[in-house]
């Protein structure tokens, strides 16, 4: 008994000493595990990438601040009501009337935003409608109907369309398409909002189509399978399953397209006639906010009331497009979370 106990004890201590080191060894090992290492080159790369990542936010923030700082200075000399209209003597009527117009270089300068907003919407709304029609149609075709090979040729071609310089598009609309459109619709003015809208639509179609197609391709295959398995035809599946599931993405595509159309400048400078009229007629000449800035900012004295007025227009435009992009992003996020099953 005694001997057995002794051998057992001895064996145990022997085993611990060889197989399971206690004390200093394991303590050192645990310190090694918790020791933090510092790699300067990794830290540098990390910080550089962080700067690259945050720079876009920084740049947007700075643009925002600069734009609004300049825009606010407009109100130091002008009345806020002048953004709607200005009282001025009218030689024709032979009395003072409330003039809703943009005549920045007149004796009594008038800075009404109404004709510019009218112009912008008269171009952007028809352009978005046309782009939505072709963009969504094309997206359905690309994602649901076209064979893989057709898609592979068609998609790069469309992205090429997005790469057309807008000045080339504007020149084409001005020189070629405008006369054609006048012949077809017998419009009073050769250059009008509709001509500009067509040009803008061509540039907006790829934006709408790409985003709408992405949205439709994000619809899981399981949903299509479920629809087919219930005896749906391809059209029933597209209309009953794919489009309803992707409707948020498609609307986001249209909203982003609208933002793009609103911000388009070169085509509208060249093809819309540049007359700041308050009108609801798409076949009349108009001047958009963007075209107004592009046309006048080069010829204005820095620090003048007119200069600040143009910044105000810019700030307004920036706010509208920022808001549109924000809404589109929210809608897209909503769709992504809804389709995550």
């Amino acid at each position: 008994m005694k001997v057995e106990g002794l051998t057992l004890k001895r064996n145990r201590s022997f085993g611990r000493a060889r197989g399971f080191p206690k004390g200093q060894d394991s303590f050192l090992r645990s310190r090694e595990l918790t020791k933090k290492e510092f790699h300067p080159q990794e830290w540098l790369i990390h910080q550089m990438l962080r700067v690259a990542g945050f720079s876009s936010i920084l740049i947007i923030g700075l643009i925002f601040i600069f734009l609004f700082k300049e825009a606010v200075l407009f109100f130091t000399t002008a009345h806020p009501l002048s953004l709607i209209g200005t009282w001025d003597y009218d030689a024709w009527e032979e009395k003072n009337i409330f003039k809703v117009m943009w005549q920045a270089a007149s004796v009594v300068p008038k800075y009404s935003l109404i004709p510019l907003i009218c112009g912008s919407f008269l171009v952007a709304v028809p352009a978005t409608l046309i782009a939505a029609l072709f963009g969504i149609g094309g997206a359905v075709y690309l994602s649901e109907i076209a064979s893989a090979r057709t898609r592979e040729t068609l998609k790069p071609t469309l992205e090429l369309l997005a790469g057309i310089p807008s000045v080339v598009m504007g020149f084409f609309m001005l020189a070629v398409a405008a006369s054609l459109i006048q012949d077809i619709f017998h419009t009073k003015f050769r250059l009008n909002a509709f001509v500009g809208a067509l040009g803008v639509a061509v540039l907006t179609i790829p934006v709408v189509m790409t985003i709408a197609e992405d949205a439709m391709r994000a619809v899981p295959r399981e949903l299509r399978d479920a629809s087919y398995a219930l005896g749906a035809t391809r059209w029933q599946t597209i209309l009953g399953t794919v489009i309803p599931a992707a409707v948020s993405g498609i609307s986001a595509a249209v909203i982003l397209g609208f933002g793009r159309a609103l911000g388009e400048t070169m085509v509208v400078v060249m093809a819309t006639g540049n007359a700041a009229l308050v009108t609801g007629n798409v076949f009349s000449s108009v001047r958009t906010m963007t075209a107004n800035i592009a046309a006048e900012l080069g010829a204005v004295a820095q620090g003048s009331e007119h200069y600040y007025a143009l910044f105000l227009v810019g700030a307004f435009l920036f706010t509208v497009t920022f808001f549109l992009n924000f809404v589109a992003e929210m809608v897209l996020n909503k769709m992504r979370s809804r389709l995550r099953m």
Partner: peptide, 20 residues
Amino acid sequence: VVALRRMVGMVFQKSNPFPK
């Protein structure tokens, strides 16, 4: 094929209700 699939129903591995 449409009538066939109506006669032969199918249930998939991953439950795939429509988002409706």
